[in-house]
Amino acid sequence: MPKPLENEPSQTQSGQSLCEKMLQECLRGELRVVNAGVPQSQKRLSTLLNEQYPYVLCNDGSTHFFKRSELQYLASLLEPEEQEALPLPILIELGANQNEATVICGGNAEEKIISIMLNMPVVCQERRIRLYKPQLALLRRKLKTATVYIFSPRTNA
């Protein structure tokens, strides 16, 4: 095998090889593509309930539409002050571990909603609620437009 040329170091200063760096750039690009449909910002449930056509704008300029029936169902589960606090869509983070996902949880409203949906108490740790695949399927079945997947390189460990 020929040796690499001396004036082209294969290792960067941080110890990463050029190949690894290129791979990371590629993966970053792929993540940008799959996360194109992620909303730019979230709206409060109370705000969405007052809109004629409830929607949020996505990163790629498209819109994410909410079903009014789902919003009304969520509103029926929450107190008015919790409706003010609940940001929608609820973000479900999918990481490298394919067997579980995490719900990004900003307050108690999300925790309450998820625990009602799953019919079991859930714990919010470091602003995240950990869900397993069957639980995720159950949540998505009930809240189709009120939840959105985001893909991240985190390992959920």
């Binding site: 056509y53 498209s62 994410h64 009014r68 437009t145």
Partner: peptide
């Protein structure tokens, strides 16, 4: 019918709802 769209893992799918 209110028609919109949403994204499932990067796939844009329609969302239809019969208005009350």
């Amino acid at each position: 019918i209110t028609a919109g769209s949403r994204s499932i893992a990067g796939v844009r799918v329609p969302s239809l709802e019969l208005q009350d």
